[in-house]
Simulated scan of single mutants.
Amino acid sequence: MEGHFLTDRGQVRSHNEDSGGIYSNNRGQYLAIIADGMGGHQAGDVASEMATTLLEEKWRKNEGLESPEEVEQWLKQALEETNTSIYQHSLERKECQGMGTTVVAAVCTEDFITVAHIGDSRCYLYNEYSFKQITEDHSLVNALVQSGQISKDDAMYHPRKNVVLKALGTGDFVEPDIQTINWENGDILLLCSDGLTDKVQDDELAGFIKSTNEIEEVGKKLIDLANERGGEDNVSLIIIQLETSVGEGEPSC
């Protein structure tokens, strides 16, 4: 597997409230995380950094997971424990009250991907058949779209498009959405914060992902495009491609 994490403060924000990374456990399996913090007085930085750090620590101690069921259970427990830690931290520190973070996390093995998310940070999968968003935003505008009150085009420009209905660390319990999908050699996974998807539409994302450029270069071009279109928010993304070495059948990292 080849993967790259990129993040940018954007053109307007004074600091970056996004966090993330790609981490390996003792079996060489990968956990990719994007967290987009929220909260005043830079508390969003604290929430997103805590989410990434705590999940990384738990993952690096992991001895390896064999089945989708094991991965799904690990993600559920890890996110619930991380939620509790962030929420307790916010209660104990006045400057952190009300903080929280979105999170999208993907465990990548040679055979399957398990994705968990809370909030409106997204995961997409590109394969030979399509480029598809595989997470459903926990947001006000997505709820309005699903209920038929507004169209997807309307959602792009809705004045409350950044209102999330679920976040990590804002309460004593949160339930992530978790799903497992298969992937094959050459498939590409994209995880990103809404700083990207607010500025670059799905068909444009697909065009970049399908290009013949190296995936790190694709990521840089996407961030540049978001910034060219205003860059009002922090922009973060992870691109991971499943590749097997010719003649060996083993993943290349």
Rank of each mutant, 00 (worst) to 15 (best):
L140S: 04
Y157I: 03
A35F: 13
I178L: 05
E232P: 10
K152T: 05
E57Q: 15
E175K: 12
K132P: 02
C192S: 13
A106C: 12
C96P: 02
V164P: 02
K220D: 03
E136F: 06
E250I: 15
G28V: 10
D45L: 02
D153W: 03
A155G: 10
S121V: 01
E80T: 09
L6V: 02
G100A: 12
N127D: 15
N127P: 04
D224A: 14
G44K: 05
N142W: 04
L91G: 15
V163W: 02
K199R: 15
R27I: 05
D111I: 09
H117W: 10
W74L: 07
Y126G: 00
S24N: 05
D198Y: 08
C96V: 10
S48R: 11
D45G: 10
E214S: 10
S236G: 12
T170E: 12
T180I: 05
I150D: 00
K166I: 01
R229Q: 11
L191W: 03
E80P: 01
G249T: 04
K166V: 07
A47G: 08
G40H: 03
L31I: 07
A226D: 09
L189V: 02
D120G: 06
Y23S: 00
E232M: 11
L190H: 04
T82R: 11
V103Y: 04
G148W: 01
G231H: 11
S236Q: 08
H41Q: 14
L225E: 14
S48L: 10
L65C: 09
I238T: 10
N16F: 03
E70S: 14
E184R: 11
I33E: 06
R93W: 09
K199T: 06
H41E: 12
Q241H: 02
M1Y: 03
E248I: 14
G195H: 08
K166L: 12
Q133W: 01
C108L: 15
N162L: 07
I215D: 00
D177C: 02
L225K: 12
C123G: 14
N213V: 00
N213A: 07
S67M: 13
C123W: 06
R60W: 05
Y23E: 08
N83V: 01
A47I: 02
D202V: 06
I33R: 09
A155T: 00
E250H: 10
L189Q: 08
C192E: 01
V107G: 11
L222R: 03
G10K: 04
D203P: 00
D172A: 09
E17T: 03
G207C: 02
G249L: 00
I22L: 10
